[in-house]
């Protein structure tokens, strides 16, 4: 991993990094990856169940509800008033095309 990778990841994550921080992040990430790469050596048999244990083991597989309208308690005004930019009660963004 090098500075170019850090810049690429920041681009993918849509985060502008200060120049001064790139070296530090690179160093931190190398340290963390060095620690987590120990799982490479773990032998995992290919049989058996895979998937997230916290969901499957307690018996929930899919949690569905009817596709209908249900009332929700929230304040529309509070949501609209927090738009960073708006016009006539609509959220306004920079043009995308």
């Amino acid at each position: 991993m090098d500075i170019k990778d850090v810049e690429n990841l920041a681009e993918l994550a849509r985060i502008e990094l200060p120049e001064t921080e790139k070296e530090q992040i690179l160093k931190d990430m190398k340290g963390i990856l060095d620690y987590v790469k120990q799982i490479e050596s773990v032998k995992v048999p290919t049989d058996g169940i895979v998937g997230i244990p916290t969901l499957g083991s307690v018996g929930i597989h899919n949690a569905w509800r009817e596709d209908g309208l249900e009332a929700r308690e929230f304040s529309r005004d509070l949501i609209v008033s927090q738009f960073p930019d708006s016009q006539d009660g609509f959220l306004k963004v920079k043009k995308i095309l």
């Binding site: 990778d5 850090v6 994550a13 921080e21 963004v93």
Partner: peptide, 23 residues
């Protein structure tokens, strides 16, 4: 807007973990 809001809004640890997760 995305890049600057996220770059300035998130602290160092959050930025680090987002990048690590992206990786």
């Amino acid at each position: 807007v995305y890049k600057k809001s996220r770059g300035e809004g998130f602290g160092r640890e959050a930025r680090r973990r987002i990048l690590l997760g992206t990786y």
